[in-house]
Design a protein around this nucleic acid. Structure first.
Lengths: 110, 110
DNA sequence: TCGTGGTTACAAAAAGGTGCGTAATTTACT
DNA sequence: AGTAAATTACGCACCTTTTTGTAACCACGA
């Protein structure tokens, strides 16, 4: 999804949150500051390329901060911004909604 | 995104809502019952293949109902389920969040 | 030589677009 | 009256575009 079709804010958010990783990364980052390698350990199936790309996307969107500590082994920390923290409950609400609807069986009949 | 990496409900919702179309279709369907061709007119850049696929996905997820009226030119109507209507405010909240954070300028400095 | 946090190039996989076919009936034209 | 064409909501096959994975490389030190 490289370009937008409307100027709607909803489409813009979905452009950022779409895909497997963004919400998962936010989920792990709400536990606190994480380093690149921490996030790779948290979900081992992401490739380092994808992790780098997704983190950049979240950074550009103002959801995470990237802090580089220059030193010997080179250390970078990722953390949710205040805006990112405000996003967390909204994502959780989606998860809750899904749990509720799938618990209710087939909603098209009920 | 064909398979899941965890059993997390958030990942499951994102599997359904990811991409350009799902939220847009829900947006138009909250205006009321729509037919296939209505939805194509609402957003002209979707192909009929994509529209059919996305509608099936939303149907399987219990977000929309598909009602087939068999007749001469064949008529099918799509409508939000109660669960789908409960989802609408959550999506709107994401849009509002995005508007608020992007209005605030660059959040990484502010 | 390994670990850190990447970038780049190439390849594989997935997503998406295009156009054709379909069924049944109305309408349009001759 | 007979024929052709249009409508509706797709499914299917083929092909292009986009996304993602893989692997290699980088610098810097312990």
């Amino acid at each position: 999804m490289k370009s937008r079709v409307s100027r709607c804010p909803i489409e813009e958010v979905m452009q950022i949150l779409s895909g497997r990783w963004p919400t998962l990364l936010i989920y792990y980052l709400k536990q606190g500051t994480k380093r690149f390698s921490d996030l790779r350990r948290d979900n081992p199936t992401i490739s380092h390329k994808m992790l780098a790309l997704e983190l950049r996307k979240l950074e550009d969107a103002g959801i995470v901060t990237r802090t580089e500590f220059d030193g010997y082994p080179l250390r970078v920390e990722y953390e949710l911004t205040p805006a990112g923290e405000r996003l967390v409950p909204l994502i959780d609400a989606l998860g809750d909604w899904w749990e509720a609807t799938s618990d209710a069986g087939v909603p098209s009949i009920a």
